[in-house]
Design a protein around this nucleic acid. Structure first.
Length: 301
DNA sequence: TAGCCGTGGCC
DNA sequence: TGGCCAAGGCT
């Protein structure tokens, strides 16, 4: 007998089967993964999860989809109401973009989220990751889905380095496409890659002792430390971002338009910075000025 | 393309 | 305590 070497599996750096088996046993039961969740509701989860931990998204998402289950229901609410429901999830432009998506999908796509990456990419706030995540998880399209978790897992298991390099979507997607198993299990594989990065192959203190991968070039190389220069971390305290957050806090708490004086109280240390932050909120379409010179969440003036 | 855009928990 | 980190996207 001659051993049959399967070209698609021989030497493969990351075995799909063992990853899928691990996922079957250890996947979190996240509500947006449940059967029957619509593409719109999955899109909502992807917006909320951008740069935001699962634990903080969970309660907001549950309330949100119960209240506005479809794009048209979301569109019918004003952007201000949507912004208020977004609460303190952070990056409130996402809420504005999500509302804009709802309006567009209701008007242009018969209230149905597009199922192809190209059309999805045309929606506001939908970039390479989100477009692919929706196509894959909502519509079972076997497209590569690359987020920060996937990039980290591939960097370690396949490339043998501690940290991924700078994001390069085309190259990163090609690298993941080369790992994708048969079409029917590709979506589950992508979810599993992300889950492994979130639960085991984490940025800080990876739990290599419980990793299901039998082959990992980083482990085989002796866990070499990262050679990349430390990227400078972004300050937050005292920045325009913090001031914008304070201003929106005031507007979310109010039931209607507020005076300039009320907004001024939100940031007194640097009036020029406060003015700049308010102006940027107006430019972003998150806040509007009423005819009476008051300020309100967009759509509530 | 690097800087900007929120928020809060963790060690 | 404070830097680091969390399912990115836009300009």
């Amino acid at each position: 007998m001659v051993d049959i070497v399967h070209p698609r599996s021989a030497g493969r750096a990351l075995e799909a089967a063992e990853l899928l088996a691990w996922f079957d046993e250890h996947a979190r039961e996240l509500p947006w993964r449940a059967p029957g969740v619509s593409a719109w509701q999955i899109l909502v989860s992807e917006f909320m999860l951008q740069q935001t931990p699962v634990a903080r998204v969970l309660p907001i998402w549950l309330d949100w989809v119960a209240r506005w289950p479809t794009p048209s229901a979301t569109a019918a609410a004003g952007p201000g109401e949507v912004l208020r429901a977004w609460g303190k999830l952070g990056y409130p432009r996402r809420a504005k973009w999500l509302h804009d998506c709802a309006v567009r999908i209701a008007a242009e796509h018969d209230d149905t989220v597009p199922d192809d990456v190209e059309t999805l990419l045309g929606l506001p706030g939908v970039g390479s990751y989100t477009a692919r995540a929706v196509a894959c998880f909502a519509y079972r399209r076997p497209v590569p889905v690359v987020d920060t978790n996937v990039r980290r897992v591939v960097a370690r298991a396949v490339d043998g380095v501690a940290e991924p390099g700078s994001p390069a979507p085309v190259r990163d997607e090609a690298a993941v496409a080369a790992l994708l198993p048969a079409d029917d299990v590709a979506p589950r594989f992508s979810a599993a890659l992300m889950e492994l990065g979130a639960l085991v192959c984490t940025a800080r203190a990876p739990r290599c002792g419980v990793c299901p991968l039998s082959s990992c070039r980083w482990r085989e190389a002796g866990y070499p430390a990262s050679t990349a220069p430390a990227r400078r971390t972004q300050r937050y305290a005292g920045t325009d971002r913090q001031v914008r957050g304070r201003l929106l806090d005031v507007l979310r708490a109010a039931t209607g338009p507020v005076t300039r004086g009320q907004l001024d109280l939100a940031w007194t240390t640097d009036p020029a910075q406060r003015d700049r932050a308010l102006d940027s909120l107006l430019v972003d379409g998150l806040v509007e000025q009423t005819g009476a010179g008051l300020f309100a969440l967009c759509g509530e003036g």
